[in-house]
Design a protein around this nucleic acid. Sequence first.
DNA 1: CTTGACCCTAGACCATAGTCTAGGGTTTAA
DNA 2: TTAAACCCTAGACTATGGTCTAGGGTCAAG
Lengths: 136, 136
Amino acid sequence: MMLKIGELASKTDVSHHTLRFYERQGLIAPAGRSDSGYRLYSDLDVDRVGFILSAKKVGFTLLEIQQLLELEITKDDNSCGDVKCFVDKKISAVNQRMLEMKRIKKSLQALSKACCGGSVPATQCTILEALSEQKN
Amino acid sequence: MMLKIGELASKTDVSHHTLRFYERQGLIAPAGRSDSGYRLYSDLDVDRVGFILSAKKVGFTLLEIQQLLELEITKDDNSCGDVKCFVDKKISAVNQRMLEMKRIKKSLQALSKACCGGSVPATQCTILEALSEQKN
DNA sequence: CTTGACCCTAGACCATAGTCTAGGGTTTAA
DNA sequence: TTAAACCCTAGACTATGGTCTAGGGTCAAG
Ligand SMILES: [Zn+2]
Ligand SMILES: [Zn+2]
Ligand SMILES: [Zn+2]
Ligand SMILES: [Zn+2]
């Protein structure tokens, strides 16, 4: 019933290095310790690693996951609105980054389009010229 | 005609810290040094900082900018095709990242949609439940 | 001749998410 | 009893793009 770190590692496919790293980051702590100081994890801890992995898959950072876990643990004192708000803020941040990436993509495509791409020397390459242009 | 680092910094809006950092990264080197060891920059160096800033704006990393500068310097020996290929590879990478962001955005939106967002306790919050779900 | 503004090098520090090593101790099985 | 396999802590190291400090040297004006 209690797992040592190596067992948890193979069960969750998270390395023991990473599990200890998550512990230092305050994401997970073993349910107890053996007499010799070995970490001992319970089934709840296994679930917790699952939560962390799920949250990572949807793009949350470790800090955000820490906050989500806090919400989870104290969920009786939090409302659905609190949790949804947390997710919606993340959606906004993701949207922001996507807009920036779209801008970048368009700029790059414009550069690519203007370049002949031939085997002629790049002496007059429009890409290099565009990047060299002074915007004063 | 020759600028000291502080002058280049205010001219380009790049801090002297960052200029020295770029130098360590091999992006730019002063045209010369004064007797007392001060960095002295030429007009070409000003252009070079402009190139770096332009390339940053379209999303290139410092390593990529280093490679682009290499292309620029040896442009007589490179073809337009080489330069365009470099940009197209970057576009592919950007597309990859955008796909991943879209996946994340959709997941987050699905989570948000399923949650009632009300002021009821989050004890049965579908978001927390979805993240807790085991995918074995 | 001192003050302030500038310059120098070398190196520490920040976030982010780990990975790995050194140098020990423990457990288990042959 | 000894070797393998596991565990422990503490801390270094990776990439990325800087920022900042410590502890000096230089230069110009008053
Ligand atoms: Zn061309
Ligand atoms: Zn071209
Ligand atoms: Zn609800
Ligand atoms: Zn909810």
